[in-house]
């Protein structure tokens, strides 16, 4: 797979605040890339620079082989962005909003109507065309935001916390649509989210802390490097658990042991087979990784 986004030694400061410091990473074409960090970690600053909204202090941004600085307009045509908050015109209808935004990409007339029908079908908003955007529910508005971002068939879809505050049904619909687009159109998705279960689905994750990369890799690699495994033991005496010399916490009718990795878990099973009669082993989740890497809890963005 080719690199569709290449960020190299990117810096950005606002006065004395160093928002982004020596950021370098790549995003492969067609992958789901997750960009994590607490509020103020530098995610939005980086996205704004990638979208050509904010000038960088130094470094290079190459999108689909094109240097952003030299061909900003061309690069903008490759990007579709769903912002944290809806930025469509609240007093205009869904149709008027999408027609105006499509014209900004040169999409007019029959071509626009056809694209609109396709998106309305995919995102299920045929009945909302004549409704004013300001009167739509959060979920309905989100669908229109995504349709707006997809109007011009972008190669890269940037989703800045797209599902925050949405009901589970709309979240599922959005992820199904995004999954289909990746499958059928090889679209690259660049995601920032506070939902760890969404980040866990990514092909590659970058965790940002104070404007710098704190960790990166696939979800599995990150789990192996930064999250402990948990063994839950059922129907055992506490003395037997204590004898293993591993940190544990009692649960209702069970004990949860924390081991650094699966290898260590296997060692314990082989050493104490009589204890391991009813048990389960799970890898640490994304929350654990985030906490280990940054020392902060992602939800709410506060330090623990």
């Amino acid at each position: 797979m080719e690199d569709i986004i290449k960020i190299d030694h990117l810096y950005k400061s606002f006065g004395s605040v160093k928002a982004v410091q020596d950021l370098s990473f790549c995003v492969k074409e067609g992958e789901l890339f997750a960009f994590l960090g607490i509020n103020g970690a530098g995610k939005s600053t980086t996205i704004n620079m990638i979208c050509g909204q904010l000038a960088k202090d130094s470094g290079t941004i190459v999108i689909d082989g094109v240097n952003l600085e030299q061909h900003t307009e061309k690069v903008k045509g490759e990007l579709g962005v769903v912002f944290q908050n809806s930025v469509l015109d609240g007093v205009l209808t869904v149709y008027d909003n999408l027609k105006c935004r499509a014209a900004l990409y040169g999409l007019t007339g029959k071509a626009f109507e056809q694209r609109l029908q396709t998106l309305a079908q995919i995102l299920d908003f045929q009945d909302l065309m004549k409704r004013t955007v300001g009167k739509l529910s959060g979920g309905q508005r989100r669908r229109i935001d995504i349709a707006r971002a997809l109007l011009h068939r972008p190669k890269i879809l940037i989703l800045d916390e797209p599902t925050t505050g949405l009901d589970p049904q709309t979240r599922r619909l959005l992820w199904n649509v995004i999954s289909d687009l990746r499958k059928n159109e090889n679209m690259t998705v660049f995601l920032t989210t506070h939902y760890m279960e969404e980040a866990a689905e990514a092909d590659h994750i970058v965790i940002l802390d104070s404007g710098k990369i704190a960790a990166e890799g696939t979800p599995l690699a990150l789990k192996n490097s930064y999250a402990a495994d948990y063994i839950t033991l059922y129907h055992v005496e506490e003395a037997a658990v204590q004898a293993m010399g591993v940190p544990y916490e009692p649960m209702r009718e069970a004990y949860r042991l924390s081991v650094p990795n699966t290898e260590k878990a296997t060692e314990l099973i082989l050493k104490y087979p009589h204890v391991f009669r009813d048990y389960e082993i799970v890898k640490g989740n994304m929350d654990d990784i985030f906490l280990t890497v940054t020392g902060k809890n992602l939800t709410g963005g506060t330090e623990r």
């Binding site: 050509g52 307009e73 061309k74 903008k76 962005v81 908050n85 930025v87 935004r101 990409y105 707006r148």
Partner: peptide, 14 residues
């Protein structure tokens, strides 16, 4: 003030 300008500036319009 509403942030709509971000949506306009994200497009390749000069």
């Amino acid at each position: 003030a509403s942030g709509v300008i971000k949506d306009l500036r994200i497009s390749p319009v000069k």
